[in-house]
Design a protein around this nucleic acid. Structure first.
Lengths: 204, 204
DNA sequence: CGGATGACTGTTTATAAATACAGTATCCCG
DNA sequence: CGGGATACTGTATTTATAAACAGTCATCCG
């Protein structure tokens, strides 16, 4: 069921009020904004909007208008992980430098955190020193994916290739050597897979 | 002036209420949450928080508590510009594919829009085909910056170098030739400068 | 034509909520 | 030791707000 033009206008007004004032308008405020001489006109529109699922009315509460879908549209807060100390989990609080809000629909896979990349080993994949890698936390990787791996307490970003029990972590830079791991002898912890890259181009 | 532990707890409660309920709590709701037997206790804390600049109280309005700084922290909505048709302005509505919310503190310079990059000409600068370039709209560029330029109705992304009236737009890929422009003969429109790069690493 | 829907007016009422006053208790600081 | 800040209680008052009723006036639709 779609909204009428008037209902849409009122929904827009509510959305804007929430955005600018931080709180929903009262019936009287809506009436004033639209020139209604009765707050009951607003009431009727709100009821219609609620029936159509555009808003949710909280009974008995002042300014109790909740915008539907606001919850889902709110962008996720991604923690930025700086250098990871040996032996501690990636998402330990002491590694988290700050949080960034980023629309999670920006990447096809939803990331769980941002990791600052150090070094030039993935240069030819367009991942440079200082870039932020958006990482999805998962212990499984498929060949060809860019992974965040932990080898002997060192966290590294490489391209993942697997051939049975033999895993290869490939840099994307001829100056660096691939890392070969025999899963039967050595341990390899996949911390996550890269789903996106963010770079700040500083303007000098 | 810093907040006391109690004041911080109450500020946190307000922040959380705004996030989950979409509206600020009343004095009574705060009192209920903290076990105060009088709403005036909440009132005093709110006044203290206002005096310290943590919130703003809207007099006479129900639930009139505005969180300070919420305005600045709200992530900007950046329009994503796809292919730009010849002769039309970059931010023409028909080029805008969608909007993304991105924390503008992610980049040192605040971007105005996102532009999808086509081609491999900036490969060695870590800007690959399909990447999104966060662009700050400005007609001025300094040497070394990555610019969005328009030459004969074609929009292109290159590194900017200038030597008096002679401008060079440098690709970052040996397979591409630099573009030389004599400002006294040819026209060059700088649409903006690149302030950041965003890439979606698809997971196949 | 007649009924349904949308968009209101004018008025009323109960309740939600802001806001104030007068105290009490505790703690820290000089 | 006294003053100021913090953290409350209990009660009171006014204002803001939600919510409802009974209508009016259009418009659309079969």
């Amino acid at each position: 069921m779609s909204l009428t033009a008037r209902q849409q206008a009122i929904l827009d007004y509510i959305t804007e009020t929430v955005a600018t004032q931080g709180t929903a308008p009262t019936r009287s405020e809506i009436a004033r904004a639209f020139g209604f001489r009765s707050p009951y006109a607003s009431e009727c529109h709100l009821k219609a909007l609620e029936k159509k699922g555009a808003i949710e009315l909280v009974g008995g509460a002042a300014r109790g208008i909740r915008l539907a879908g606001t919850h889902a549209a709110r962008p996720a807060e991604l923690p930025l992980v700086g250098r990871v100390a040996a032996g501690s989990p990636i998402l330990a609080t002491e590694h988290i430098e700050r949080h960034y809000r980023i629309d999670d629909s920006l990447f096809r896979a939803r990331p769980d955190y941002l990791l600052r990349v150090h070094g030039e080993s993935m240069r030819d994949a367009g991942i440079l020193d200082g870039d932020l890698l958006a990482v999805r936390q998962t212990p499984e990787a498929r060949p060809g994916q860019i992974v965040v791996a932990r080898i002997e307490d060192e966290v590294t970003v490489k391209r993942f290739e697997q051939d049975g029990p033999r895993v290869r972590l490939l840099p994307e830079n001829p100056d660096f050597a691939p890392i070969e791991i025999d899963l039967e002898r050595q341990e390899l912890a996949i911390e996550g897979i890269g789903v996106g890259v963010l770079r700040d181009l500083e303007l000098q």
